[in-house]
Design a protein around this nucleic acid. Structure first.
Length: 464
RNA sequence: GUCCCCAUCGUCUAGCGGUCCAGGACGUCAGCCUCUCACGCUGAAAACACGGGUUCGAUUCCCGUUGGGGACGCCA
């Protein structure tokens, strides 16, 4: 049997970080088994679904390189098929029309709760004669759930989970306006799409019992279920905007690399021994549902950031240059060919100091700024003291330097410092301040080499 | 209120009855390295929620307590 999984977001906003992980697990599982990973847009809630949200979700999935097979299935377009399934159950006597008003249902829930019974529809119209139907009321169609016994789901992550059927009420399949509910749509679509493994958040676990009954009523095979734990905020509470970013696109904007996101998200709730850092290919080889934990995990930005720093150091430098250029230009700092060349030459020194692309772009900006350079407070302080005088004395040596390479410059400056009985830092810091406008930068000799003799001297003279 | 799930360092986790006075990673702290900041390296503090069983032996199995999370919509 070929494995077929799916990710089924509802397009009401951005791709939630928890959704991203669900998509990732579905992707990894399908690829591991050489199966298919499908995408279904659950847009049956017409009031909340937008094309903009669909685009945002597709964008994020693409960014994370979670490529799905085939075209996305749009659930709303399949509504007639869903309704047809409901009507077939009606004909077989496995479903029935219910004429209760929202008010009656609310009262029913209240009463059940007060009596200590499970809150749900009490089956008022289940066996009632349709002739008693009130006039002018459009009925919903409800499924006749089993009332005796219990239902067990053999969940691939949670293990066997059993619930008494008395807990399950007769759910609505078709609304009064004839549109299908989520419960009906998922089941029909998952069946029609040939989904073999439903991997989703465990907030759906209780839905699985109801859906199992629906599969049976329809005479269909029940897919394998795998309910993965949800991701909580750092405080253990449900992840929400209160905790900061919850949309994948925000992490992208904040300078996180997709491979870092995926590595982090894979490791959150899933383990393969002590392995912490692994490639997409390894993840596909190693991923299995048995390795998925059963407890909720907390989202830890610090660890994500550490992973991101690692991947920045591993990334193709040319890619980082592109990222930095686009971020710099977006912030209003145009980058010309000279600037680009400096970024490329200086990237090695820049990347190992950055934790995010935002850091990287900030730290790289001095390479492309035009003179005079604006000095930050610490840089100014360095230059206000002995700094400027040191640079003044150093200038002739730099002008006369036969070789403007990093190593030669370091030797030159070291000699200069020794001759004047200074520590290297007493010379390096003023140089750094003059070249970068800051007290922090990549090694100064690297910076000098990247900038070249003319620019280096221009920058130094500019602060004298 | 009813039902379901979960429970190892601050966090993510390894552990699938003895190899555990519990391992790794992030974070934290100390030190080394050092032209700044990082990187890197070395070291340290840091956990089996609690109570009963089962067993020769429980972090590992069972039950309960407590604490978290989730579901109870004509939302998805």
């Amino acid at each position: 049997m070929t494995v077929v999984t799916r990710f089924a977001p509802s397009p009401t906003g951005y791709l939630h970080i928890g959704g991203a992980r669900t998509a990732l697990f579905n992707y990894l599982f399908a690829r591991h088994h050489g199966g298919k990973f499908l995408l279904r847009i659950e847009d049956t809630d017409r009031a909340r679904s937008t094309q903009q949200a669909v685009d945002a979700i597709l964008d994020s999935l693409t960014w994370l390189q979670l490529d799905w097979d085939g075209e996305p299935v749009y659930q709303f377009a399949r509504a007639p098929r869903h309704a047809e399934a409901a009507h077939s159950l009606l004909e077989k006597g496995l479903a029935y029309r219910c004429y209760c008003s929202p008010e009656e249902l609310a009262a029913m829930r209240e009463e059940a709760r007060a009596a200590g019974r499970p809150a749900g529809y009490n089956g008022y119209w289940r066996d009632r004669d349709p002739s008693e139907a009130p006039a002018g009321v459009d009925p919903v169609i409800r499924l006749k759930m089993p009332r005796e016994g219990e239902t067990t789901i053999d969940d691939l992550v949670q293990g066997p989970v059993t619930v008494a059927n008395a807990q399950l009420d007769d759910m609505v399949l078709l609304r009064a306006d004839g549109t299908p509910t989520y419960m009906l749509s998922v089941v029909v679509d998952d069946h029609d799409m040939g989904i073999t493994h439903v991997i989703r958040g465990d907030d759906h676990l209780t839905n699985a019992f109801r859906q199992a009954a629906l599969y049976r009523a329809l005479g269909w095979d029940i897919p394998q279920f795998a309910h993965i734990p949800l991701i909580n905020g750092p405080d253990g509470k449900k992840l929400s905007k209160r905790h900061g970013a919850v949309g994948a696109e925000t992490y992208r904007e904040d300078g996180f690399l997709p491979e870092a996101m995926c590595n982090y998200l894979t490791r959150l709730g899933w383990g393969h021994g002590d392995d912490e850092i692994f490639s997409r290919q390894q993840a596909i080889e190693w991923f299995d549902l048995a390795g998925v934990g059963r407890s909720a995990a907390r989202f830890d930005t610090a660890k994500l950031t550490a992973l991101n720093a690692h991947y920045i150091r591993e990334a193709d430098p040319a890619r980082l240059v592109d990222e930095v250029v686009s971020r710099l230009e977006a912030s209003g700092l145009p980058v010309d060919e000279t600037g680009r060349a400096r970024l490329a030459a200086g990237m090695e020194g820049l990347r190992e100091r950055a934790r995010t692309l935002v850091d990287l772009a900030d730290a790289a900006a001095f390479y492309v700024r035009s003179l005079p350079l604006e000095l930050d407070e610490k840089a100014r302080k360095i230059l206000d003291g002995e700094g400027a005088e040191v640079l003044r004395q150093l200038c002739p040596d730099l002008e006369a330097a036969p070789d403007f390479s990093r190593d030669a410059l370091e030797a030159l400056v070291r000699t200069f410092a020794e001759k004047n009985s200074m520590k290297l830092g007493q010379v390096a810091q003023p140089i750094r301040a003059a070249l970068s406008g800051s007290s922090v930068s990549p090694p100064v000799f690297d910076v000098m080499e990247v900038l070249g003799r003319n620019e280096t001297l221009d920058r130094i003279r500019g602060v004298l």
